[in-house]
Write a protein that binds this DNA or RNA. Structure first.
Lengths: 151, 151
DNA sequence: GTAGCTGCAAAGTTTTTGCAGAAGC
DNA sequence: GCTTCTGCAAAAACTTTGCAGCTAC
């Protein structure tokens, strides 16, 4: 994982490289397929550093957000969630999620088919898109199969 | 506005048609171009019914959500927002928002260019999309013009 | 050594819940 | 008349802030 880049970003802003910040970063890298809440990061952090405080998680997440190392997403369940910004898109572009309405699992998608939509939006209302987030709600494969059997 | 349909939906579920519920509904219809928070609905409701409580707004919104009359959206600013489900799309399909990162205004979009994306998602991971929400972040026309002048 | 960071606890926000009285059907 | 709803206040849930001590540089 790209720890060097993060260290450089922190130092470049006069911020300090602390064990807590690297820990949060490593936790997020180790769970890059999930979308962790602050509480979940906290629980994972406590495993290797039991004295850590939840406030530190919130403050660390704030810093990482400002450095555009992570992104904030919400799935309307009352929790703010965080995920690493994709390596190959420095601007943080390209965020797609498929949310199963049955099992609540979240799948991350990589495709980027929104260029057309963005062009059309620019032409129609003069809005210049710099980033986007797409949430698809529906049924994942396993829930669909389960449903087919039951009802 | 389609008050009849809502009354029918309420009665069909054994729920009561109260002045407060109709008031919230009418407020949302009168502000269908905005994305009101519970607090904003509350303030508008107090104009015609000063004794109303904020808890009633939250409970009413919950009911309207369950009846799929309104939708919940979040723009990651700590507030849950609500909007009427489009008349012409009973499933609540088609939710696009363009959020200006400068002035924080939210523009609603009507286009639906996600069919291709949805088909691809189904083919690749077997996820069947029933609804979607798109957030485009960027600069709206007026902020873009302001920026061009300043910096 | 100085600035910035951390942990704890306390406070702030948004949303939910409990309960007695009121209203719908 | 019975059930559901409302308003108020208290509580819960998530996040932020204040402060004294600690750590990075």
């Amino acid at each position: 994982m790209d720890e060097e880049r993060v260290i450089a970003l922190l130092k470049g802003r006069g911020l300090k490289v602390t064990g807590q910040r690297l820990l949060v970063l490593n936790i997020m890298a180790a769970h890059s397929d999930e979308h962790l809440t602050a509480e979940e990061i906290y629980d994972l952090a406590k495993i290797s550093r039991p004295e850590i405080g939840l406030a530190t998680i919130y403050r660390t997440v704030q810093v990482l957000l400002e450095l555009h190392i992570i992104n904030k997403v919400t799935f309307d369940d009352g929790y703010a969630r965080y995920e690493l910004t994709g390596e190959d898109c420095p601007s943080g572009h390209r965020h797609h999620h498929a949310i199963c309405t049955a099992c609540k699992r979240v799948y991350s998608l990589e495709t980027d088919l929104l260029d057309k939509l963005e062009q059309q939006v620019f032409r129609s209302i003069g809005f210049e898109v710099t980033n986007h987030e797409v949430k698809l709600y529906g049924l994942c494969e396993s829930c669909r199969k389960k449903n087919a059997g039951n009802e």
